[in-house]
Design a protein around this nucleic acid. Structure first.
Lengths: 167, 167
DNA sequence: CTCTCCTGGTTGCGTGCGCACGCACAATAG
DNA sequence: CTATTGTGCGTGCGCACGCAACCAGGAGAG
C-alpha cells in the first residue's frame, strides 16, 4: 500500500485532461469575448439561456439552474445586464416573490453579435482539434456524467444496486 | 447570417457539456477532499506534482507550469503548505533567484492519505459514468486540444501546415 | 569591475465568486 | 382572520485568484 503509483493512477487521465483544458480555454475565450464583443462570458451565458427560453423570459431560480453560475451570482449578473439595458427585471404577476429576467431587443442584438465570436473561439481552440467521433463521445459521455446515470445499460436494468458499484 | 439558431449551435455541445461537468464536479470534489482529508484541491494538486518530480523537488516556475494554478497562486499555496509542514521552501544552490519546493515526509503521508479520497471521488462522480472507449476518447482528444495540435496528423508534417495557424 | 538586460519570485490590489443570512411573499392550518 | 412553515431573491462578507508592479540575482558586453 506504500506503492507510489497509488497517488497518480491514469484512472484519472480523462479527468485531469478535462481540468487542464478548462483552465486553459476558459480564460482565453473570456478574453476574446470581452475584447471582440465587449461582454464577459457570464453575460453571454445568461443572455444565451434567456434567448432559449420562451418569450426570452425566465425566473431567477430557473436561470440559476440552467446557467453555470450560482443563483447568487445570477442576481448580480442580471443587475449588470439591466444596467447595460440588455435585460429587464420584472415582477412576476403570478407570484410576488419571484422576479423575471427578460431579454430586451438590445440584449438579443448584442447576443447575436457576440455569438459568432464565441462559437468561432470554441471552434478554433477546441472543436477543431477533435475528430467527429470524439466530439460525440465527449458530449454523450459528459452528459451522462451530468445526469448521474450509470453506464448505458443495454436493457433497462433499474436501480437494484443502489450502493456504489465501484470498479 | 441573422439565423437565430446561430447563437446556439450544437457545434458547441461538447464544450457546453465540459463546462457544466466542471462546474458541477469541481466544487463537489473539493468539498469531499476538504472534509475527508482536510485539504483543498489546490494543495492536492501541488503535492501530487511534487511527488511526481524527481526527489520531490521542483522550482516554483516548473511547478506553476504543471499545475492548474497560476505562478502567482502557486507561491501562495506553497506558503500555506510550508506553514502546514507539508513542503519545504529551499534556496537553489545553483541559482540564487529560484526557490525550490520540496515535499516533506509529512507531505508525502498526507498526500497518500488524500489520494484514495480524491481518486474515489473521481470514480464515483466521473469515470464510473463513462464507458472505457469514452474515457480513452476524452483523454486523447482533450490532450490534443491542450497541445494545440490539429486533428490526427497521418504524417509528421509539423509547423508549416496550411491550416489556419492561430496566434 | 560596472552597466545593462534578462529571468525567477513575491506582494499589493482589484475582481469574481459563492455561502450564510435576512427579508418579503405565498401557502396551509386552525 | 392569525399563526406557522416554506420558497424566492437580494446583500454583507470573506475567500481565491490573477495581473501588474516590484525586488533580487544571474549573464553577457565593454
Amino acid at each position: 500500500m506504500s506503492d507510489p503509483g497509488a497517488v497518480s493512477s491514469d484512472r484519472s487521465a480523462a479527468w485531469a485532461a478535462l481540468l487542464r483544458v478548462h483552465a486553459a480555454l476558459v480564460p482565453r475565450l473570456d478574453r476574446e469575448l470581452r475584447q471582440a464583443a465587449g461582454m464577459p462570458l457570464a453575460w453571454y451565458d445568461v443572455l444565451l439561456e434567456l434567448h432559449a427560453a420562451p418569450e426570452g423570459r425566465l425566473r431567477m431560480s430557473d436561470l440559476g439552474e440552467r446557467v453555470v453560475l450560482s443563483r447568487t451570482r445570477v442576481s448580480r449578473v442580471v443587475d449588470e445586464l439591466v444596467n447595460a439595458g440588455l435585460v429587464l427585471r420584472e415582477a412576476n404577476p403570478r407570484d410576488g416573490r419571484s422576479a423575471l429576467a427578460t431579454l430586451t431587443k438590445a440584449g438579443a442584438r448584442r447576443l447575436r453579435a457576440a455569438a459568432p465570436v464565441y462559437l468561432d473561439g470554441i471552434d478554433r481552440h477546441f472543436t477543431q482539434h477533435l475528430t467527429d467521433p470524439e466530439q460525440k463521445a465527449i458530449a454523450r459521455g459528459l452528459n451522462r456524467v451530468l445526469a448521474g446515470d450509470p453506464i448505458a445499460p443495454p436493457t433497462v436494468r433499474s436501480a437494484d444496486s443502489p450502493g456504489q458499484r465501484v470498479r
